[in-house]
């Protein structure tokens, strides 16, 4: 197992002067794995990534790549490559010059440079843009080049800090797919940062859900979606109904795990509030004593209900969280 570990964070703590930062981070990322740090803005994702890249010093703890301690190396000495949210490319250099810069530093021969750049441009679907300047390309194109430029240097670990967040939704999901394909094809190890849970679910081998500078849960997208360890994770990932119980605990149920029928007497009674068509499924909200509950139903089911109908809900697969947020089935 340990022979398969590419990146390891051991008890990593990075604090700013203000006292903000991340504390006691432990994480192992395997070779060829894509791990996503997911959490709301300000929870410390960028801080971890920049500590790995060497742009901020670790306060304590260790960063190991292939078992070697890189905690105190300058960024230029680390076998990592980082893609930032924006302004990645050097504006005074053409695409070709941008890509050649790192290769030149590594004394790669001219013709070898050209061969590798041509190959990489093909991989990121930017052939023909060699002579363009960053200012002459769209945001999506710039990020393709930025990713290509990083991949060209064959980093041990690729660090991506919300690389697609400045792009519009359609291009974002397209870039996501392409990144995933390139990443699995080349077998590179990636730490990806995002605040978008959908993006994390779509891309990741494993997700780290973060909360205020610490890890809340680490697991595959399925584990995190189906077995969120805390109310915080349950709330952050996907849609979730929280139903307060008399004993002070809370039941958490996904909308797809609730079924509806006419009448009263099942787990929860209420009245149909809205029925909304959302693509291939239909979302119904029901007014109950404990607030609004959301569920997904099929088109055939939807036809049997209208606004104001008295209905009763059956809670399928649910989880219970007590006040101190630990999970119990």
């Amino acid at each position: 197992m340990s022979g398969n570990v590419k990146l390891e964070l051991r008890n990593l703590t990075t604090l700013y002067k203000s006292g903000d930062g991340v504390r006691n981070i432990n994480l192992t990322v395997n070779k060829g794995e894509l791990v996503t740090l997911l959490g709301p803005s300000g929870c410390g994702k960028t801080t971890i990534l920049r500590t790995i890249g060497g742009f901020i010093p670790a306060t304590s703890g260790q960063i190991l790549i292939d078992g070697k301690d890189i905690t105190h190396l300058q960024p230029e000495k680390r076998p990592t490559a980082m893609v930032f949210q924006s302004y990645n490319l050097w504006p005074h250099m053409t695409v070709y010059e941008n890509m050649a810069f790192g290769l030149k530093l590594r004394k790669v021969p001219k013709n070898e440079q050209k061969r590798r750049i041509t190959e990489m441009l093909e991989l990121v679907k930017m052939t023909g843009y060699e002579k363009k300047y960053p200012g002459q390309m769209s945001g999506g194109q710039q990020q393709r080049i930025a990713i290509g430029r990083s991949l060209l240097l064959q980093p041990d670990v690729l660090l991506l800090d919300e690389p697609f967040s400045a792009l519009d939704a359609k291009i974002r999901s397209q870039m996501r797919e392409e990144l995933r394909k390139i990443q699995t094809d080349l077998g590179i190890t990636v730490v990806f940062v995002t605040h978008d849970q959908e993006e994390a679910m779509a891309l990741s081998d494993r997700i780290v859900v973060m909360n205020k500078g610490t890890f809340e849960q680490v697991g595959t997208p399925q584990e995190i979606y189906n077995h969120p360890v805390s109310r915080y994770v349950a709330d952050f990932i996907g849609e979730m109904n929280f139903i307060p119980m008399l004993d002070g605990s809370t039941k958490a149920v996904r909308p797809e795990n609730i079924s509806v029928s006419h009448g009263t007497g099942k787990d929860l009674d209420g009245y149909v509030r809205t029925i909304m068509m959302l693509g291939h499924y239909i979302e119904m909200t029901v007014d109950t004593d404990i607030g609004i509950v959301k569920l997904y139903i099929t088109a055939e089911e939807a036809e049997q209900y209208k606004k104001g109908d008295p209905v009763t809900l059956t809670l399928g697969d649910y989880r219970t969280y007590s006040d101190h947020q630990s999970a119990a089935k």
Binding site: G54, F55, P75, E76, A81, G102, L105, R149, S150, L153
Partner: peptide, 9 residues
């Protein structure tokens, strides 16, 4: 930072 990142001192 990206310049440092690709290996420039």
């Amino acid at each position: 930072e990206s310049s440092r990142d690709v290996g420039a001192g």
